[in-house]
């Protein structure tokens, strides 16, 4: 029954040695990082080891960290051992230029749609996925909307800037010039003017 974080950590280090890095326990949940080439091996080890047997994939998602050069996209797995009632979380990082991560669909059927979702919003290329298509957005979409370079608010609005949200310009959403003014591409600006003109002129 008793499956402590220390024991899991021990077993992991015993098996994968120094490839398991950044071991933390935020809010009691064991969290670690492995090289992205190892993700399936780690999943299978955690699944098949009779003592660990993390056989339930609670969640799979991605996070975009634009400031981590060369490892911008994180794929996060949440696993649960339902018998011992223990949860763990592990991450793999991939470069945004080529975000290839092996698919977990062979181990967990539930990874299918979760990976499609991560692909849809972050563009993670899950190698070996049987049907990697967009799932929430339209197929014609040509960008990955949850990446940080796409701001939520209308870029022409000045009152909803990063400073509003405590990030004071240190965090680059890609919608600011160096002097802090909102970056408007000429095309986007023109479109806005046109659209405003139309509504003001009133076709009705």
């Amino acid at each position: 029954m008793a499956l402590s974080n220390d024991l899991i950590r021990q077993r992991l280090i015993q098996k994968f040695g120094e490839q398991v890095t950044n071991i933390e326990e935020p809010y009691g949940m064991l969290t670690f990082e492995v090289p992205k080439e190892l993700n399936i091996e780690v999943l299978e080890f955690l699944y098949n080891d009779p003592e660990l047997s993390f056989q339930f994939l609670t969640d799979l998602t991605a996070v975009h960290y634009p400031s981590y050069a060369g490892r911008e996209i994180a794929v996060v797995y949440h696993l649960h051992n339902l018998v011992a009632n223990c949860r763990i979380r592990f991450k793999v990082f991939a470069p945004i230029a080529q975000p290839d991560v092996a698919s977990a669909t062979k181990v967990f059927a539930t990874a299918n749609w979760l990976e499609r979702e991560a692909y849809d919003f972050f563009g993670v290329n899950f190698v070996g996925h049987p049907d990697l298509r967009r799932i929430q957005n339209v197929d014609e979409m040509d960008y990955f909307p949850l990446r940080k370079e796409y701001p939520v608010e209308d870029q022409t609005r000045l009152d909803k800037d990063d400073e509003m949200f405590g990030r004071g310009g240190s965090f680059d959403f890609g919608n600011r010039n160096d002097d802090g003014s909102p970056r408007l591409t000429p095309q986007a600006g023109e479109e806005n003017v046109e659209r405003l003109g139309e509504s003001a002129g009133g076709s009705r």
């Binding site: 609670t58 969640d59 998602t61 996070v63 975009h64 996060v76 949440h78 059927a109 539930t110 299918n112 749609w113 979760l114 979702e117 509003m164 949200f165 405590g166 990030r167 965090f171």
Partner: peptide, 28 residues
């Protein structure tokens, strides 16, 4: 199981929020 995976970077809004939506997961 409705799960909330919340990452905060010290800002005033979440850095990332992922919702584990049970319906989405089992409908596949």
């Amino acid at each position: 199981e409705l799960g909330f995976y919340l990452i905060s970077d010290g800002g005033r809004s979440p850095y990332r929020l992922h919702l584990r939506r049970p319906c989405f997961i089992y409908y596949q």
